[in-house]
Design a protein around this nucleic acid. Structure first.
Lengths: 317, 317
DNA sequence: CTGTTAGCGCGTTCAT
DNA sequence: ATGAACGCGCTAACAG
């Protein structure tokens, strides 16, 4: 027991014992078994994150921030990949079986049954990315609806009338598309500040440069007058810009393009991407802080945090 | 005990007990505690991966392949971030403390002491990315030296004589730079097929588009005749191409550029990047297969697997 | 500050 | 095919 204390709460142990324990650790190459510790203390110091796809650039900054913030609090991250559909039951089993002290969902939608299981798991759960309407526990993210409306207003104010939206083909992406369409065509605004038409083009996940190029081709086939495109990822936007250039269209004169994410490259390519910046690092940090606090018995004031967004104006719109 | 068997080896249990267990599981919302299982069986079904930086695009495909391959074998991934320097002791403690059944190092160099600790941990370790000279256990990756030599030969054969290399400023990156320089200036080749000069430019990690742009500016200041650049990442290459265009240089006529990684966007931007493709997915799968096999007591034939590389010729060189 | 006792929830082992 | 006994390595709780 003194050895255990020497490792966990050295302040509660005399110098002499501390020294002997230290010595024994070095002599034997002892590494504490956190599994056993977790079993006894009912705290695993593990936090699980579920993302649709670890390979996409979208969630990287979030994961990075999570790892960093959790690491400095003594927690490790278990990363699980759920795909773009509904959260599979077995994945949930596998993850919950590790008895994580908290869970972060990033752009993952559990089924009704999954939601029940998460609730009864009795651990803090943070949903991020989307500001979901009926949070399970806590939400940290931003409102895709607000973003869609802001971008629509931005493009219309710049004089564009034939808008297009490129996004994924899953439920949430379609909701975003609807917000964009609704905002662009909103009858409550004067006709002079309203879009004439909005084309919606869906691409298969994961969104990449190629799918952006293909999407623009389809958009122009459908509505040749299109003069502005909002893409749900900077990668798509880069694809749209590339395809526009390949067709001899000038960006932004003939076609304005707005991306999403403000990925590292967005400001450094030519033309520099106008895009929507979201604060992934803040989302990750906030989520980590919340989970650690709750895991250690402290309570958390806010259960919903909107980290906001900003439109970064550069060359493409 | 029958319940345990019903969950782990259902074939060894009668229909009747199977049904009762199933029923109880549903009725109570039971989720097996894998921590306790791990403690008793001395197998955690956890594999840890250490990468310098999860946010870089470089290791994503590898991580993705690892998660997928491990997941289908019933293993979970613990992801830890080590930074670009030497592997910190405490991280190793934290990771080893979870008693993973195996470890994957990707572009991470443990200290001499760290190597000792990894060996005495008694679990399979796969080093990936670099083909390290003195493997700890198993290596899956490719030879940066061979790649550097192949790219140098490629550029020289295309008529370029004033080469440049852009890479990180850590030890391994410098080794790669040296291979490139040595191959380009190799005295054993005829003077007509040898570079006249090679400039080496180091950028701080993580490499991105901005650092590529800056690097080209410094290279041209140092050696205005430079007519070909090999970048240790496609992101750097995109930066170099961008900066060249910003300066009115034609790519590849005035300046040839070769990237590294064949990231998703490489073939879809304009000009399409000529780059070195490595098979990250194969690396991840092979590493996972090896670890699972060893963790389950099977032996593995090869301890060193070279997954090779290929130069993908596109527009920039 | 130190030590004793008990038990976390499983799987291993051996017996039936 | 099933069950009893035990222990994995640690920490909680309590006593001193």
């Amino acid at each position: 027991m003194s050895a255990s204390r020497a490792l966990n709460t050295p302040a509660q142990v005399s110098e002499e014992i501390l020294g002997r324990v230290q010595e024994a650790v070095n002599a034997t190459g002892y590494v504490r078994n956190r599994l056993a510790g977790a079993l006894a203390s009912r705290r695993s110091r593990l936090v699980a994150a579920l993302v649709p796809n670890v390979a996409g650039p979208v969630f990287q900054d979030l994961i990075q921030a999570l790892i960093a913030a959790l690491g400095s609090a003594g927690y490790q991250l278990i990363l699980a990949q759920s795909g773009y559909g509904e959260l599979p039951e077995e994945l949930l089993d596998a993850v919950l079986g590790q008895r994580p002290d908290g869970l972060v969902l990033a752009g993952v939608v559990p089924s009704a049954r999954g939601r029940e299981r998460l609730k009864s798991a009795g651990i803090p759960v943070v949903e991020t990315w989307d500001m979901v309407p009926a949070p399970l526990d806590m939400v940290v993210g931003f409102s895709h609806e607000k973003i869609a409306a802001a971008v629509a207003a931005y493009l219309i104010a710049a004089g564009h009338r034939h808008l297009a939206f490129v996004g994924g083909n899953h439920a949430r992406a379609r909701r975003r598309a609807r917000s964009f369409v609704a905002a662009a065509l909103d009858k409550r605004r004067p006709a002079s500040r309203r879009a004439a038409a909005v084309v919606v083009e869906a691409v298969a996940a994961p969104a990449d440069v190629r799918s952006g190029r293909d999407a623009l081709a389809r958009i122009l086939a459908q509505q040749p007058k299109t003069d502005a495109v909002f893409c749900s990822s900077d990668l798509l936007a880069l694809g749209v810009v590339t395809e526009a250039q390949a067709r001899g269209l000038r960006v932004p004169d003939d076609l304005a393009v707005v991306g999403f994410g403000d990925l590292q490259f967005a400001g450094d390519i030519l033309p520099a991407l106008t895009t929507v910046r979201i604060d992934s690092a803040a989302i990750g940090e906030t989520a980590a802080r919340f989970i650690v606090a709750r895991a250690e018995g402290r309570d958390v004031a806010a259960r919903t945090v909107d980290t906001g967004f900003s439109i970064i104006q550069r060359d493409t719109a």
